[in-house]
Simulated assay, not measured.
Amino acid sequence: MPGEGDPHAEVMFIGEAPGYHEDRQGRPFVGPAGQFLNELLGRAGLRREQVYITNVVKCRPPGNRDPLPDEIAACAPYLDEQIAVIRPSVIVTLGRYSMARWFPNEKISRIHGKPRRFGDVVVVPMYHPAAALHQPALKELVEKDFDALREIIAQARAEAARTVEAQQSEEKAQQMRLF
Score class of each variant (00 low, 15 high):
His8Gln: 14
His8Tyr: 13
Ala9Lys: 10
Ile14Gln: 01
Gly15His: 01
Gly15Ser: 03
Glu16Pro: 03
Ala17Asp: 03
Tyr20Asn: 09
Tyr20Val: 15
Gln25Ile: 07
Gly26Asp: 08
Gly26Lys: 06
Pro28Trp: 00
Val30Thr: 06
Val30Asn: 00
Val30Glu: 02
Ala33Pro: 14
Gln35Leu: 13
Phe36Pro: 01
Leu37Ala: 05
Leu41His: 06
Ala44Tyr: 07
Gln50Tyr: 07
Val51Ser: 01
Ile53Gly: 01
Lys58Val: 10
Lys58Asn: 06
Arg60Leu: 03
Pro62Thr: 10
Asn64Phe: 09
Arg65Thr: 06
Pro67Tyr: 03
Ala76Asp: 09
Tyr78Asn: 01
Gln82Phe: 05
Ala84Cys: 09
Pro88Arg: 00
Ser89Arg: 15
Thr93Ser: 02
Leu94Met: 13
Ser98Gln: 07
Trp102Asn: 06
Asn105Ile: 06
Asn105Gly: 11
Lys107Phe: 09
Ile108Gln: 02
Ile108Lys: 04
Ser109Arg: 14
Arg110Gly: 04
His112Leu: 09
Arg117Trp: 14
Val121Arg: 13
Pro125Tyr: 02
Tyr127Met: 03
His128Val: 05
His134Lys: 15
His134Pro: 00
His134Phe: 05
Ala137Ser: 14
Lys139Tyr: 04
Val142Cys: 07
Lys144Ser: 11
Arg150Lys: 15
Glu151Pro: 03
Glu151Asn: 11
Gln155Pro: 05
Arg162Glu: 15
Thr163Tyr: 12
Thr163Met: 12
Thr163Trp: 07
Gln167Arg: 14
Gln168Glu: 15
Ser169Ile: 11
Glu170Met: 09
Glu171Gln: 15
Gln174Glu: 12
Gln174Asn: 07
Phe179Thr: 13
